[in-house]
Design a protein around this nucleic acid. Structure first.
Lengths: 333, 333
DNA sequence: TCTATTGGTTGGAGCGCTCTAATGCTGTAG
DNA sequence: CTACAGCATTAGAGCGCTCCAACCAATAGA
């Protein structure tokens, strides 16, 4: 378990430690003969370079830190895929961490990532206060994904939630719906733009909006439908704040004897893997998650390379994914 | 962006670097006066210790590496929660990484984790060949979660899949079912014990087993039901290899006009968050995922502390979660 | 022939920290 | 008044690596 060092490899290959260092970094200015000797010795000893010693000595880092606020949410898995693809392309490694949506734990997670002195830090939908983000940004380049910020030192990558909900409303209107309600995300991070988008789209179509208070869970979606039922008149279409909420809404509708989409159309938001299940087959709004990750990584790497110091604000276009929970009012023709 | 070092803090506090080091490590042998001066200086400078320099100098590590084979699967999120809880308790940090279920990428991920010289390494359901695991185990303590191994140098944490499926069969039999089929996981990691468990349980009850080839996806579950339909006689209950498979099976059953659980009962495996959705409400087998993580972390820390060198093999008891997809044959009374 | 030039190679300093051994400084006992 | 604990504090070496400047052929140009 005691691992060989460069010195050991150098001794075995009969060269200096500096030469081994050059070989390990793939320098061209090494004769083939020596290179092979070094590689052979390294192989025989099972040597692999010590990342920390390397970055300590070079005063540079080839590591990007990623704080995922919620590992349970597959949304972030795809963002990480995008980050990883770009990072790997450019010779960077990712180290990931999670805050479990608890500010305290998240703060610890960010501290822990910073203690590795990463070249950059991606915070995926962080819940820590803005001050904590600022202090991290004083120490390294920071990009925020799925959270906006006015800090001039951080980059951000978000989807255009206003536009996304607009797509949902347009789709329903084009099917002939006029009584379209919105199940609102309440305090959730992205619920404000989504609500704005709903109101704007309804107004643009000359329709009367109806916002029902709800939350980002399936239980909340079901509860909101109960409220709608008690209220009397059921709309012919529901635009939900996210997929979980939509699924809850659908099950409550079905329990109450409504058929989806025959009697009521339902649209979700996020295009989670859930929505694609044939048993669910939810019409929803897709966010380009992989692209989020790619752009976040690129933003970080641009700063690392010193190509840019101005903050960048990416606002990506969501898209509509039509499945089987929307139809013309009165049922599919 | 140029960060202060211990030297800077020492100068500001008017003490030596060694004393700052003692304060940072919470040593008791520092006078309160100096301690406060140091903490104040550190605070003012925004100093935080450099994890790599620290572990380089101390030749020890307070980091556990975690390789998650698939970040998209929420199963692992809970395992990570367990790992994190125990690690944090004992002053260890987690660094996570993912292999995206690709052996090549996974290998890179493990290499990257090893380059940080972690105190231990947890591999969650790795797909790399056993040789790669062995070579990692030569370099640090390794624990495998949701993958078994005969390597004498690694610990393992698994659920007893045989017993889990047994619980499902027992449950169905107690409801009065006799024609119970198993949708098999094919090449999947845990499908062999699950199949064995099914066969053993059926035999124990004196029933005729029926294994249908399938896979760990909802599409495969639906396809297996199609095969069953073409085959003629539909069983009254289905024990599926996992939750996704079960959901696919359910939707295919419903499309074919069967009611679940009225005509056919369905049991999943894994108790994913999916299963708990009211729209799905799937009877399934729960694995103690959080416990997986806790035990994995403890196994690692035992080795780190040198308390144990013999490998440990944890085989945890799964449990049955009854929801709304199982009932007496012919429908709930 | 002598000086540049080039390409391969090396020693040594130093990155930010920890750890050991040694230092200075009380206070108490002999 | 010396001796010796016992404690807080510090200097210095060293962790595994990178980087710089220096070095040493071997070749090219004058």
């Amino acid at each position: 378990m005691v691992r060989p060092t460069m010195e050991d490899v150098a001794a075995r290959a009969g060269v200096s430690r500096a030469l081994v260092s050059l070989v390990m970094r793939g320098s061209p200015k090494v004769s083939d003969q020596r290179r092979n000797a070094v590689l052979k010795a390294a192989e025989e000893l099972g040597y692999s370079p010590h990342a920390m010693a390397r970055s300590l000595a070079s005063r540079t880092s080839h590591v990007l830190g990623v704080m995922v606020s919620d590992l349970h949410n597959a949304f972030f898995a795809e963002v990480v895929d995008g980050l990883d693809a770009v990072a790997a392309e450019q010779g960077f490694d990712l180290i990931i961490n999670t805050g479990g949506r608890s500010p305290a734990r998240e703060r610890r997670a960010v501290q822990s990532l910073l203690s590795f002195r990463p070249a950059g830090l991606a915070l995926l939908s962080p819940v820590v206060p803005s001050a904590a983000i600022k202090s991290a940004a004083d120490q390294t380049s920071v990009v925020l994904v799925a959270r906006s910020s006015r800090l001039s030192t951080v980059d951000t990558v978000n989807d255009d939630g206003e536009r996304g909900i607009g797509l949902a409303v347009d789709h329903l209107v084009s099917l002939g719906h006029t009584r379209i309600a919105h199940l609102d995300g309440g305090e959730g991070t992205q619920s404000a733009p989504r609500r704005r988008g709903y109101l704007a789209a309804m107004e643009a179509h000359g329709l009367t909006p109806r916002v029902v208070a709800s939350e980002y869970t399936d239980a909340a979606g079901a509860k909101a439908v109960q409220a709608l039922l008690n209220d009397g008149e059921m709309p012919t279409a529901l635009v939900c704040c996210n997929d979980f909420n939509a699924i809850g809404a659908i099950s409550a509708l079905e329990e109450a004897g409504y058929r989806v989409p025959h009697d009521v159309s339902v649209v979700g938001y996020d295009n989670t893997s859930l929505a694609a299940l044939r048993h669910v087959s939810l019409t929803t709004i897709d966010q380009p998650r992989n692209e989020f990750g790619r752009l976040a990584a690129e933003a970080l790497l641009q700063r690392v390379r010193g190509e840019r110091t101005e903050p960048v604000r990416h606002l990506l276009h969501p898209s509509l994914v039509v499945r089987n929970t929307t139809a013309t009012p009165g049922g599919p023709r």
